[in-house]
Structures are given as structure tokens and as C-alpha cells.
Design a protein around this nucleic acid. Structure first.
Length: 166
DNA sequence: GCCAACGTTGGC
DNA sequence: GCCAACGTTGGC
């Protein structure tokens, strides 16, 4: 290997899933899975940038207590999302095998947080005030996270006086 | 290219 | 269920 093929630095992502569809517990059970079903071009472009080894913050959305519930890792770069060709709600008639529209990396389970970083708590953490997640109107289901955000959210939240009052 | 209508996301 | 915000679609 030469310096020309230097490995790109590890990146970090926040990926949302509705726990009713697929939760961190499901990923723990499966070990790894394809991150299928993303149908937004900006999110798709992020998925195509994901590389094996990248860190993933697993976020539960559209549920009673949204937040980061665990950690995963990209283990295979994105390939054509099979659900765009299959019958069902993720089918996209514009896509062909020759020209797929949607792509999905494979993600493997790393760990579940004993205490999730609930959205309400994320909002109260000054070091996370700049997160894309918190930007008004942001609805991306896949977004980059910074190393600083990763360091905070991939670890257990510290105990706080009002923990449990959320 | 503009923009209104519509659909989706996702917190609350 | 409500609603804000944004993306997509399609007429022009």
C-alpha cells in the first residue's frame, strides 16, 4: 500500500429508525443488517459516503421517548437497496437493477446504552447545542455527527439530578 | 424555472 | 391527532 491509498478517517453518523419497525434490540438480535428504506436523496448521499468502521449512533424516532439508544458500526459500504425492487412500501418503480436509485450500507451492532440519551436531554447538553439533529425542521434520517458529538452520545449519559424526571 | 399542492417526517 | 417544516411533483 502506498500513501496514495491512505485510509480515509473514520466518520460518524446518526441514523434514525422507528423502534416499532426496527430497534436497537432488533439489531442486537440480528448482529448486523442492511440499513434499507431510506428514500431521501440527501440521506442517501450520506449513506453512500459511509465506510466500514464508521461509527453509528442508533436513534429511535417517532416513539414515546425519542433519543440515541445505542451504538453500531458500518461494516459494509452501501450497495443497492433490495427493497426498491421488491413489492411493498419501499418499492420504487423508477429504479432498475442497472440504475438503482437507493443504497444501503450494512451496519453491525456494537452496544446498547443502559441509559439512552433522550432527545430532551440532548437538548439540554450545552456541548450538543450545534447538532444537526436539533436544527429546526431537520428531518433527515441519516446525518453526519462530529467526533465531539460522537464521544458524548456513544457513552452513557452522566447521572443527573433530574434523571428519571424525563 | 416558478410555485402551489400534496406527501412525509417526527416531536409533542 | 395536530401541526410545523421540508421534499417532491407537476402544471404552466
Amino acid at each position: 500500500m502506498s500513501a496514495m491509498s491512505a485510509v480515509s478517517p473514520r466518520r460518524y453518523w446518526l441514523m434514525k429508525s422507528e423502534p416499532g419497525d426496527y430497534s436497537i434490540a432488533d439489531l442486537a438480535r440480528d448482529g448486523s443488517d442492511l440499513w434499507t428504506g431510506v428514500r431521501n436523496f440527501q440521506a442517501r448521499n450520506f449513506l453512500r459516503e459511509a465506510r466500514p468502521g464508521d461509527g453509528v449512533l442508533f436513534y429511535h424516532s417517532s416513539c414515546a421517548a425519542p433519543g440515541v439508544y445505542g451504538v453500531a458500526e458500518v461494516c459494509e459500504e452501501a450497495s443497492p437497496d433490495p427493497t426498491q425492487f421488491a413489492r411493498g412500501k419501499y418499492r420504487d418503480p423508477r429504479a432498475t437493477k442497472e440504475k438503482p436509485l437507493w443504497f444501503c450500507p450494512r451496519v453491525r451492532f456494537v452496544r446498547e446504552l443502559r441509559t439512552p440519551w433522550l432527545l430532551a436531554r440532548i437538548r439540554r447538553e450545552p456541548a450538543l447545542a450545534g447538532m444537526t439533529l436539533l436544527r429546526r425542521g431537520n428531518r433527515l434520517s441519516v446525518m453526519p455527527a462530529t467526533l465531539a458529538e460522537w464521544r458524548i452520545l456513544s457513552a452513557e449519559p452522566p447521572p443527573s439530578a433530574d434523571a428519571g424526571a424525563e
